[in-house]
């Protein structure tokens, strides 16, 4: 293996390469997507999914898993489409309350040493329940400013691409490059040693859950900005999409190994596999299965790369 194609660089490049492959396939099948308008249409929904994937990644970073994310994004979408539209003050307070609730969950999981899967699975029913109370039937309206932001048409580069890059870069610097981010990630790698160095694991967990809640709220708001209305199950699929996207982007379930840029790329890749399969005129009944097959393919490639690392 040459010096520049080490296992490490291959591991980092794999998410980007899978995205490039799927994009190339789409361009080949439907050359008209290779335009400003086409890309805009193709990648529209990438923003909320990317935000949700980032939210999931924060939880993965401290060796937990969030099974309530889809329900939580649905709830915040419902709040955005109703309270934030009707009475902005109440809406802002409610969304801030959602972030606080996530922080409290982090504290609960840490202090009582509970499995995050159980707690978040239980909470997912709470979120859906509250969402149904707020918005019993599909409806609501997107606040004008969110709608305006999500339908921006900047010159040259479509808005979803700019947004995805900005999200990836901000989180990359915050979590991967800042001095504070190191401690947050260290808590996923070796909690005992971080604690022995005098840091509070409780504070770290609360911070990570609050960040996750914050990005969950952003995801719900972005989603409403695109769909202009909400319903209580609008983001149901986001739970598994966000986990799959983060893993596809190179994050791991344990050990604090995460990648914000990878997570955004993974989310976009997953979204595009859906379009790719539509362009193939695949029966929609088979699409979810085919999406799973693509996921398995990419993860299998990663395992192969890791294996070759061990062997050398």
């Amino acid at each position: 293996m040459s010096r520049f194609l080490t296992v490490n660089t291959m591991r980092t490049l794999l998410p980007a390469l899978s995205l490039a492959a799927i994009l190339a396939a789409i361009f080949y099948l439907q050359p008209r997507t290779m335009s400003y308008f086409g890309l805009n249409l193709l990648l529209n929904l990438a923003i909320p999914i990317a935000l949700a994937t980032i939210a999931q990644m924060f939880i993965l970073c401290v060796n937990d898993l969030d099974l309530s994310l889809g329900a939580f994004v649905s709830l915040t979408a419902c709040i955005t489409a109703t309270w934030l539209y009707d009475t902005p003050v109440l809406g802002v307070l409610a969304l801030a309350g959602c972030v606080l609730a996530y922080a409290a969950l982090g504290a609960l999981i840490h202090l009582r040493n509970l499995p995050s899967i159980v707690v978040t699975l239980g909470m997912s029913f709470v979120w859906v329940g509250v969402a149904v109370l707020i918005l019993p039937t599909p409806g609501g309206k997107a606040p004008e400013w969110i709608r305006a932001l999500m339908t921006l048409k900047p010159a040259l580069i479509p808005f979803p691409i700019i947004a995805a890059v900005v999200i990836a870069i901000i989180v990359h610097f915050g979590l991967m490059k800042s001095a504070a981010g190191v401690v947050l990630r260290g808590a996923g790698g070796n909690p005992l040693s971080v604690e022995r160095a005098g840091w509070s694991l409780l504070r770290i967990k609360v911070t990570m859950y609050a960040l996750s809640g914050f990005f969950g709220v952003l995801s719900g708001m972005a989603l409403v900005g695109l769909t202009t209305s909400a319903d209580a199950n609008i983001a149901e699929r986001y739970t598994l999409l966000s986990i799959a996207g983060a893993i596809l982007g190179g994050s791991q379930f344990v050990g604090g190994r995460v990648s914000p840029i990878g997570a955004v790329i993974g989310a976009v890749t997953l979204l595009l596999t859906g379009s790719f399969l539509s362009f193939l005129r695949l029966n929609p009944d088979w699409q979810i299965g085919a999406q799973g097959a693509i996921l398995i393919l990419v993860l299998a490639l990663r395992v192969l790369i890791d294996r070759s690392d061990k062997r050398s």
């Binding site: 490059k177 001095a179 504070a180 190191v182 401690v183 990630r185 260290g186 996923g188 790698g189 070796n190 005992l192 040693s193 971080v194 022995r196 160095a197 005098g198 840091w199 050990g255 604090g256 190994r257």
Partner: peptide
């Protein structure tokens, strides 16, 4: 061993030296 395997050598030093912070900490 009590290093964080997911961090770099320098980042691990930062874990035990909280006073390393701000611009250029890396």
């Amino acid at each position: 061993l009590s290093l964080c395997p997911n961090l770099t050598v320098g980042e691990n030093a930062r874990i035990t030296h909280p006073q390393i912070r701000g611009f250029g900490w890396r």
